[in-house]
């Protein structure tokens, strides 16, 4: 079954639309769903032109396609998703794929903050850039992403994979400040540069194929290793946190 949700053009507005109802399994029972624009509850068809092709008995057979100029306003799309596919033909708002445990979300544009927050499984592909807190945890939470994979083909903002405890995050461009902060499991790979990676890490593996700017002084150098055709410098830490994590970098620069 393919569900196409095309955002209806309307007066220019930036008030976010919370759309946690947009999850493949919800469409097995029809399209009588609601979303929230600010404090107003709206029917799905007040915001989108909805079309459905074919039918399905299980979430894995449902694909939801989102389109329109304002998809960046949509928050919480794919929250608690456990199967099927969501394709966003543009940008997506905050909290896309929160807590997802299965299925695939593909974003053709950029994703706003908290993409894949606390996800436990499934796959997220972002063809553009992601903002802060991609694959991270919630405020005060001890664990961020616990499973699944996130792949970003553009750049990532700050606090990428904060508190990651499992799964894999790959960013093909640069990442911002504090990538992998409070990491205690999982794997983070940044193909470009980033600042202060793996701050306060406990366990897990963080790879920076570019330069780690502002490298923290509390990582102990352990020589070099070969990794997928690259020679990387191996550190362990964060010793300030009695950590035994692994940080591999191509180059590094202290703020000395």
């Amino acid at each position: 079954m393919k569900v196409t949700l095309a955002m209806k053009p309307g007066p220019r507005s930036f008030i976010p639309i919370e759309a946690e109802s947009i999850v493949p399994k919800n469409f097995l029972a029809g399209t009588d769903l609601a979303v929230w624009r600010g404090n107003r509850e709206l029917r799905l068809d007040e915001v989108f032109s909805v079309s459905v092709e074919g039918d399905a008995d299980r979430p894995e057979d449902v694909e939801v396609v989102l389109s329109g100029d304002d998809t960046f306003r949509l928050k919480r799309v794919g929250e608690y998703m456990d199967g099927g596919k969501i394709t966003v033909l543009g940008d997506i708002g905050m909290h896309c794929g929160n807590f997802m445990s299965g299925g695939t979300i593909e974003i053709h544009g950029n994703a706003d903050g908290w993409l894949g927050r606390e996800m436990t499984g499934g796959t997220i592909l972002c063809r553009g850039d992601v903002a802060d807190y991609c694959a991270s945890g919630y405020r005060g939470g001890r664990k961020g992403m616990k499973g699944g994979s996130v792949e970003v083909f553009g750049r990532a903002g700050d606090f990428l994979a904060e508190s990651i405890a499992g799964g894999t995050v790959t960013v093909h461009g640069d990442a911002g400040d504090m990538a992998g902060a409070e990491m205690h499991g999982g794997t983070l790979i940044v193909h470009g540069d980033c600042r202060r990676p793996a701050a306060n890490m406990k366990t897990g593996s963080c790879y920076v194929y570019g330069t780690a700017q502002g490298m923290l002084p509390t990582f102990a150098k352990n020589g070099t290793v070969q990794h997928e055709g690259r020679t990387l410098i191996h550190f362990t830490g964060d010793i300030a946190n009695r950590g035994k994590g692994n940080l591999f970098v191509k180059g590094y620069k202290y703020l000395d």
């Binding site: 202060r196 002084p217 300030a240 946190n241 202290y254 703020l255 000395d256």
Partner: peptide, 30 residues
């Protein structure tokens, strides 16, 4: 401290308080 260097200095102090001074570079954020 050099601007933006607070975190590094705090981390270094934590390590030194734990007795791990040898890992700390000669200067941290100035």
């Amino acid at each position: 401290i050099k601007p933006g260097g607070d975190y590094a200095v705090l981390s270094a102090l934590r390590a030194i308080v734990q007795g791990k001074t040898e890992t700390i570079p000669r200067t941290v954020a100035g």
